[in-house]
Amino acid sequence: MKALLVAMLPLLASTPALADDYFGFQSPTGNIHCAMYTFDGRTEARCDLRSYTPTYTKRPAGCEQDWGMAFGVGAAGKGELLCVGDTVRDPGNPVLPYGEAVSLGGISCVSSKTGMTCTNAEGRGFSVAKAKQKLF
């Protein structure tokens, strides 16, 4: 049992909290890594950029951690620039091919040659790419 727990520690450390449902994926270039998860009854999508030209240059209010490279959206409400102390980047994440989509709890993320777009049922979310990031 102890060996199993030790083997699972890297996986648990790479997931936000201990999500009920969690899956990660990345763009074909490997520059964008995303995760969709349900935790404590809330579903969210998050994407982190490895390399980017920042579109947003003002630090979020009260943020004392990393920012500018992580974006998120919940099942309701608009997309957000996140203030984070972790990452969803994982070289083991499966590739989401261009033109393909994944969904969880009313949120869909679509991979395209121009980046990754994640949208909730309200039509709110974010689009991220190396050259530009957009919240809506």
Rank of each mutant, 00 (worst) to 15 (best):
K113W: 13
T119A: 07
K132I: 09
C109P: 01
D20A: 12
T29D: 14
A17I: 09
L49V: 01
R42Y: 15
L11M: 14
G92P: 09
P91Q: 13
G24P: 08
M36E: 03
G68T: 02
G62E: 04
P28T: 02
V102G: 03
M116H: 02
L82C: 05
P97K: 03
A131N: 06
I32T: 05
H33W: 08
R50L: 15
D66V: 13
K58T: 15
E80N: 13
S14Q: 13
S108D: 08
F71S: 04
F71I: 04
Q133K: 08
V128H: 03
M69W: 15
L12H: 10
G105F: 03
P60K: 04
Y52S: 08
F25H: 06
G115L: 02
G123L: 02
C34S: 07
R89L: 15
T114Q: 12
D21F: 14
G115S: 03
F71R: 06
T119L: 09
R50F: 11
K78C: 08
V95H: 09
T114R: 10
Q65W: 15
T53A: 15
T29C: 10
G105K: 01
S108Y: 08
R46Q: 08
E122D: 12
A3V: 15
M36D: 01
E122H: 04
V73K: 00
A3D: 15
Y98C: 09
S111R: 01
G41H: 06
G41L: 08
G30A: 04
L49C: 02
K2M: 15
A17G: 12
Y52W: 13
L12D: 09
L96D: 01
P28D: 01
T15I: 14
P28C: 00
F71E: 05
